[in-house]
Design a protein around this nucleic acid. Sequence first.
RNA 1: GGCGCGUUCGUCUAGGGGUCUAGGACGCUGGCCUCUCACGCCGGUAACACGGGUUCGAAUCCCGUACGCGCUACCA
Length: 487
Amino acid sequence: MSKVVRTRYAPSPTGYLHVGGLRTALYNYLFARKHGGQLLLRVEDTDRMRLVEGAVENFLDIFDWLGIEFDESPRVGGPHAPYVQSERLALYHDAIATLKEEGHAYPCFCTPERLEKLRSDQQSQGVPPMYDGHCRTLSADAAQARIAAGEPHVWRMAIPKQQTVEVNDLIRGSVTFDSSTIDDQVLLKSDGFPTYHLANVVDDHDMRISHVIRGEEWLPSTPKHVLLYSFFGWEVPQFAHLPLLLNPDRTKMSKRSGDVAVEAYREKGILPEALINFVALLGWHPQDEREMFSLNELVGEFELERVNKAGAVFDQQKLNWMNTEYLSRKSDDETWDGVAPHLSDELQGVSIARVRYAVSCLRQGAVSYLDLAEKVSEAFRPSVLVETAWEEAQLNLIAGLADRLSALPAESWNEFEVLMNEFKSLANSVGASQGLKGKGIWMTLRLALTGREHGPELGRLVGMWGREDTLNRLHAAVANMTSRDAQ
RNA sequence: GGCGCGUUCGUCUAGGGGUCUAGGACGCUGGCCUCUCACGCCGGUAACACGGGUUCGAAUCCCGUACGCGCUACCA
């Protein structure tokens, strides 16, 4: 009989959700779902100095946007509530009492100043900076008296000496540490709040966490956690330390080189499904060579055994490509709903039908809704004046086409696709009458109509613009050329 | 400095002794398509960190070296 799989994502509410945090949360989610277990979100707010107002709500909202659901969280509650560490203080104090009785924890009265001096002395001597055990040898009575006297103190973990501590990691195998290299970690701070080390062990046990899946930066402190479990006589959960997400220079991913907040990607127009798919592939690979996966498909495919050991560089270019792929799979209606909020005010005077037509014409290859909105604006922007020495035939083409177009029945200007074909054949016939063909016709018209060498297919542009705009552009081009001729 | 982890194309990766003259994807790049750009299609470029072993045979196993990264707080 296998135990119920329970995983957790335990962020510290100090800001936004980091993409590395997203990857950790995602793997926890995938693993739990894959095994029919539960995922919970626990807030580790034991550092009162770094608290950021609204951070928890922000996390929860972002996960909603991503479609990652927690079975238990501060928002939905659950059987092990509260899910906020600052509301679980009694648990940690009880734990310290237990540890104290067994001699696994001791009060330390050293001042921050003493510790600072100790550290700098050790550093200058080239020895590893570690607590020197100054208070560890205090007699129980002496310590008790100082506590009773109200002297500020912390509680430290009494690390046993000369012991090998083994961490069994699902991704890295067995990793061993010599306990003499482990510091007498502070477990309870002088403000009465626990440190991460104590709180995470107590809570993971209390919340029946079966698998601790977290970033590699936690591996070095895991022996402390393992020791704590054994002090308490609790079963040690399975550990899986995920490879780091890296900057292009291969240092731990940070704000310094690009965006790290999931929010920033949302604002850039990255779709949640693209971000999830992309991030899932950073450090994990399916059995075959597919790489487009929905969240549900990932649940089916995910295996901790296939998680890599080495860090992965977050490649913005590939994310963009993936977003393009997801965008291209949307229906026209979905695409419209996505772009609409980003459309520029420049488009005020244009009918919705025309803008929608523009969106459907221009969406191919767009990286994001933002990008697409810009393409649309671009298509409607006024023509740029070009300094070209036009030939007689080109002038005749432009003027002739303007005449022929203005003769078209008004209704046909609203049938975009019909108009496009009509425009093409008119352009070709007028062009032919002037001895022009192919590029000679089209580049002439493109320059006359947009003033630019590149852009969307002209026939479609004409559909987007409509009668008035199109004719204005043509007339303006003719006027510009003839007036220059006159000079 | 100490401890730990890691090292296959520029990037994400496949690979778990022979099927690897190392596969896929992004990027870059050549061509095709075409009124241009983009899209699309077809092709190309490029990697097993190094040195020793083990073995008939090593990208795959072992050891060492180098390099990189992480941790080393009354932060998580």
